[in-house]
Design a protein around this nucleic acid. Structure first.
Length: 490
RNA sequence: GUCCCCAUCGUCUAGAGGCCUAGGACAACUCCCUUUCACGGAGUAGACCGGGGUUCGAAUCCCCGUGGGGACGCCA
């Protein structure tokens, strides 16, 4: 077991959020950079909201992103892997119970019989009086014996509360991204460790697991910063050394509110479906709160592992800017070898029902033409659609082009020239150039009045890639059909 | 309300007291390349939240204010 051990501990209540992905990425990078272990633990103690489906999806997303972990719940088998499991909190209940008992015995925790209604009333009263609303339990000073007696009488299910030390003092720790952070101990009241149903609560499991799993560095979202006080108290109660904490700033939407559903896509899964590359998403989210020491903007996973360090983590919240994500994606996408790029784009192409040649050379040439206009893998669909054997749909701009006085003649000539060569399956670049030349001289048309109508007869729109590279990618029969179609002969 | 965190171009950021007339990237705009579109290249515009200190000197350190965010649960 390595001495540097990080973990990512998602709760399986929905999709993996990009914020979670960033936390996972930093934890992964830090472990990789330092030859440490990266552990995946599932925090599924919220019985209401946790589902196995969510867990499966989140693990799949992590796998897609490529953040491999040495220990944790396996993404495909869903089985534990590693020496300090189980790695699902719902399977560690007896461990938490034992530890709660230990605190109970030592007088550091107590059984509390307060009902929800009573707590609610306390909260309202505190609110009215302008006091911080902390639970004050009348059972705080009961002896363990009395409490156990009450339980054995039946009818009540108590929670186990942590007894916050009476002495008011300051808890301090050195945050990896924020530096020294101080909390007054009276910031919190006695908090629940075990729910009345016996299920432990986040702060409790988190401490026990991080300690037992020998986690050395805990990287987590900023919303946990104030939880750290409670956790520090628990560590102290057990006499355990604390790991190092690093609280990552929040990711915001364009309105500077915490990134959420109403801002659009927030889940990793959605970005995958929209045609983003995992390495590009990782690159982009890494830059939301971290910067390369070489000021590099485009980084591979390997680059990030090499360059990652905690001291370059930024403590201010960052706005998620999809325009930049797109640019990052485009850079990664265009750098991919063509066979790899095709492999990634193909599912989107077939998903759109496009049947394209499986000739590797054709694919290579077509990608050469199209990749400069692709930012997302999904962009391939509209780019390749005209290359498939399907009829054209004309854009408004195309109709306008066709309304030029010379356009019809150009296409008639184009079609005639094509028909003369109808025996061939594809036109070569030089054959196309020759045809275009003769259309030009025969019809005495040049410039955009020449090539725009031809482009419309090929693509259905007057803009796009260069004709001499485009035409050799389209079957002759399709070319002729389209010329017919545009002339209204369909 | 109480406590905690944060604050550099529209956005992501560099900046650890003099290297800063504040650098880079995305987006915007202009031009070049191009018989279109995109790619690419060159350039323009654009920021240290406010006020007090400390210091010979502050974007950088301290205090106050303001703004934003987070936490105050038998959620995580």
């Amino acid at each position: 077991m390595n001495s540097i051990r990080t973990r990512f501990a998602p709760s399986p209540t929905g999709y993996l959020h990009v914020g979670g992905a960033r936390t996972a990425l930093y934890s992964y990078l830090f472990a990789r950079k330092n030859g440490g272990d990266f552990i995946l633990r599932v925090e599924d103690t919220d019985e209401e909201r946790s589902t196995e489906d969510s867990m499966r999806m989140q693990l799949a997303d992590l796998k897609w992103l490529g953040y491999e972990y040495q220990e944790g719940v396996d993404a495909t088998t869903l089985k534990d892997r590693g020496p300090v499991g189980p790695y699902r909190q719902s399977q560690r209940l007896s461990i938490y119970r034992e530890h709660a008992d230990r605190l109970l015995k030592e007088g550091k925790a107590y059984y509390c019989f307060l009902t929800d209604d009573e707590i609610e009333r306390q909260r309202e009263d505190a609110m009215k009086a302008g006091r911080p609303h902390q639970v004050v339990s009348p059972y705080r000073d009961w002896s363990l014996k009395d409490a156990e007696k009450k339980i054995s009488e039946g009818g009540v299910k108590p929670t186990v509360r942590f007894r916050v030390p009476d002495l008011t003092r300051e808890y301090t720790f050195l945050d990896l991204v924020r530096g020294e952070v101080k909390f007054p101990s009276d910031m919190v009241g006695d908090f629940v460790l075990l729910r009345s149903g016996g299920m432990p609560v986040y702060n409790f499991c988190c401490v026990i697991d991080d300690a037992l799993m020998k986690i050395s560095h805990v990287l987590r979202a900023e919303e946990h910063l104030s939880n750290t006080l409670r956790q520090l108290m628990i560590y102290e109660a057990f006499g355990w050394a604390t790991p190092q904490f690093g609280h990552l700033s929040i990711i915001l939407g364009p309105d500077r509110q915490k990134l959420s559903k109403r801002h659009g896509a927030t889940s990793v899964n959605e970005y995958r479906e929209r045609g983003y590359l995992p390495e590009a998403l990782s690159n982009f989210i890494a830059l939301l709160g971290w910067s390369s020491p070489k000021a590099q903007e485009i980084l591979s996973m390997k680059d990030m592992i090499e360059q990652f360090s905690l001291d370059r983590l930024h403590s201010a919240a960052a706005v998620f800017d999809e325009a930049k994500l797109k640019w990052v994606n485009a850079q990664h996408l265009r750098a991919l070898p063509h066979d790899e790029l095709w492999r990634r784009a193909e599912p989107f192409l077939t998903g759109a029902g496009l049947k394209l040649p499986d000739d590797p050379d054709w694919r290579d040439r077509s990608l050469q033409v199209f990749k400069t206009s692709m930012e997302l893998l999904t962009d391939a669909v509209e780019l390749y659609r005209p290359l498939a054997k399907i009829p054209l749909t004309l854009t408004d701009e195309a109709r306008e082009t066709m309304s030029w006085p010379t356009s019809r003649g150009v296409i008639e000539e184009w079609r005639a020239q094509l028909k003369a060569k109808s025996g061939e399956s594809y036109l070569t670049e030089s054959e196309f150039s020759a045809i275009q030349e003769s259309v030009k001289t025969n019809r005495k048309v040049k410039g955009k009045e020449l090539f725009m109508p031809i482009r419309v007869a090929i693509l259905g729109k007057p803009h796009g890639a260069e004709l001499k590279v485009l035409v050799p990618l389209i079957e002759m029969s399709t070319l002729i059909e389209r010329a017919d179609q545009v002339l209204g002969f369909v």
